[in-house]
């Protein structure tokens, strides 16, 4: 057993971990933040995407102890007090959601992109979600949604989301 300290969605946690668990397991099984999904466990599908210190990572490929002292955002940290994050709103409105299993990862990849570039073109959007597989939508509506979100965020100046 080992103790790690990390900040998730603005909240400080101190967790006892087995040394061989992944960050994904800590988030899901210990913090019960089950919005982060496991689709492959091998870094291929992006369903487990989270933002760690500003960059997206596959939480199935990060050992829990590597998250010591890090600041993490999961899908549960996306909605603001006043409601949905503009990215979430755009996904809903554009019909970008089907089974939903890829969506938490997609939304976080979109956030990481838009936090750095508020006016991405469609190529850049596709590039930003290239590590996230979706088996349902065919991606076009997801790209539409991220495009729409960039416009919302440009207008509202709501970049942080938390």
């Amino acid at each position: 057993m080992k103790k790690i300290n990390l900040k998730v969605n603005g909240v400080d946690y101190s967790v006892e971990i087995e040394e061989d668990v992944r960050l994904l397991d800590v988030l899901r099984n210990q913090l019960r933040l089950t919005g982060t999904k496991e689709g492959c466990g091998e870094g291929e599908c992006g369903a487990c995407t989270i933002i760690m210190d500003g960059v997206t990572v596959n939480s199935c490929m990060v050992m829990a102890f590597q998250a010591e002292g890090k600041e993490i955002i999961t899908i549960e940290g996306m909605a603001t007090k006043s409601g949905l994050h503009p990215i979430q709103r755009a996904f809903l409105e554009e019909g970008a959601v089907q089974c939903g299993f890829c969506i938490p990862g997609m939304v976080l990849s979109a956030k990481a992109l838009l936090d750095k570039n508020l006016t991405p073109n469609r190529e850049e959007i596709r590039e930003a979600i290239s590590g996230n597989l979706c088996r349902c939508t065919g991606y076009n509506k997801i790209v539409d949604a991220i495009d729409k979100a960039s416009k919302y965020m440009g207008k509202e100046g709501d970049v942080n989301g938390i």
Binding site: L33, T34, G35, T36, T74, I75, E76, M78, A79, L84, Q88, F91, L92, E93, G95, V97, G100, I103, P104, V107
Partner: peptide, 14 residues
Amino acid sequence: LRVDGLAKVTGKAT
């Protein structure tokens, strides 16, 4: 809007 869309974009869908 799809009925289960909100739960899915917020990560609450079980």
